[in-house]
Simulated assay, not measured.
Amino acid sequence: MLHVVKIGGKLIEDEFLLDTFLKNFHKLRGSKILIHGGGKYASILSKRLGLYPKIVKGRRITNMKTLEVLIMSYAGLLNKALVASLEKLGTSTLGLSGADGNLIQSIRRYVKSIDYGHVGDFNKESVNIKDLYSLIQLNYVPVFCAITHDAKGHLLNTNADTIASYIAISMKEIEEICLHYCFEKRGILRNLEDANSYYTKINFDNFYKFRIFYQGMIPKLENAFYALKKGVRKVNILHPSSLFCRRKDKTLLYL
């Protein structure tokens, strides 16, 4: 079993939650890959530098100055802090962007109604399956930030939920995959004011019928359901306390 785990949101900023996650991630049996975001921290850093983030439909508009901040945040401080913390627990890790080892290529998003700037999108050949699996066979845990490249010398901001989805889809050709989207809630909530009102299961039809989720959750769910459609065996959205154990306080997605 290969666990593909994505973390983001307030989880990265909350010392207790992050510590809980890292300990449980360390205990996960089988192969594993970690993908992290960090948009909230990047937004804070941007404001300190006099840049104000613009988010459209849950996705960040990325001009060149914004891209520089994201690279500093994602591929720099956040990535290496996670690597150091996992190494402390005894997990042999490699902190990576998509450009490292040419592991994840992307193409700059085409301009349609919105110009997202220096943002990467994927295709079925984006993930370098062979070399990524070689790292896993050497008992390394790859830790990817949300930066990829276009193989033309350009780095691109890429949605971490999308990276997790495409890694899971690509690696299913080699191993059985469990894709986890891990954040600060116990699952997808019916009521944002009630932390215990999570759905235990959500299927694709209900997601698009009711549109009951807040804006930032839409890209996550779109990527999660896309992975299921492409043959990933299991996808769930959960709190870090549920990652290692068999507790049912999580949201399982199904078609």
Rank of each mutant, 00 (worst) to 15 (best):
F144L: 09
V4E: 15
F122L: 09
K130D: 12
A42T: 06
V111H: 04
R233D: 15
A99L: 15
F16C: 09
G38L: 04
L22G: 12
V69G: 04
L70M: 04
G76I: 15
A160G: 08
I136T: 10
L96W: 07
N79R: 02
V143H: 04
N203Y: 05
R211C: 10
G90Q: 14
P240Y: 12
Y198R: 01
D194E: 02
G9P: 10
K209F: 11
F225C: 07
V56R: 00
K234G: 12
S170I: 11
D249V: 06
N24E: 08
Y254E: 12
F204N: 10
Y140S: 08
G38H: 01
I61R: 01
L89T: 13
H36P: 08
Y140A: 13
Y41S: 10
C182A: 07
K172E: 15
A146G: 05
L253H: 09
I174A: 11
G90S: 12
N196T: 08
V143C: 11
S242E: 13
H118E: 00
F225N: 01
V119P: 00
D115L: 00
K248E: 14
T148A: 11
I177W: 13
D14N: 08
L238I: 12
T148M: 04
A151H: 10
N102P: 05
L252N: 06
F21W: 14
I218E: 03
K10P: 07
V232P: 01
R48S: 15
N203T: 09
L96M: 14
N157W: 00
A195G: 14
V143W: 04
L253S: 10
L67R: 01
